[in-house]
Amino acid sequence: MSKFGFKLTPSGTINYDQGDFRLAEFIDQHEPSSRLCISCGACSATCTGGAFAKLEMHKIHLFIKRGMSDNVKTQIQNCMYCGKCQLVCPRGVNNRNVIRLILTHFKI
């Protein structure tokens, strides 16, 4: 399809009505601080792992909350757990625990 210059991808829009919110609920329950994220992006900018692979913490929060949790599966494994994202977070989101919970949820 791509040779026609466009693709029909389900990820082109956010289908909120048919989102998969199981991960969102799981994280919401175990790490409520994730609700506080305002997508300021400080975490993604400072990310040590993000310099060498794709990893944008604030987008991970967004994807999960939009019911698009499949999008975070591969990204999340790039985390180096250094904790800088948490030190710069103005909202006190416990990002490392969120990552741990995602890994637990997906059993990866």
């Binding site: 601080s33 757990y81 250094c82 904790g83 948490q86 006190g92 416990n94 490392r96 625990n97 741990r100």
Partner: peptide, 11 residues
């Protein structure tokens, strides 16, 4: 602030 204390909240 230990990096081991993953489940501890900011507070």
């Amino acid at each position: 602030g230990s990096l081991a204390g993953i489940a501890l909240s900011q507070e």
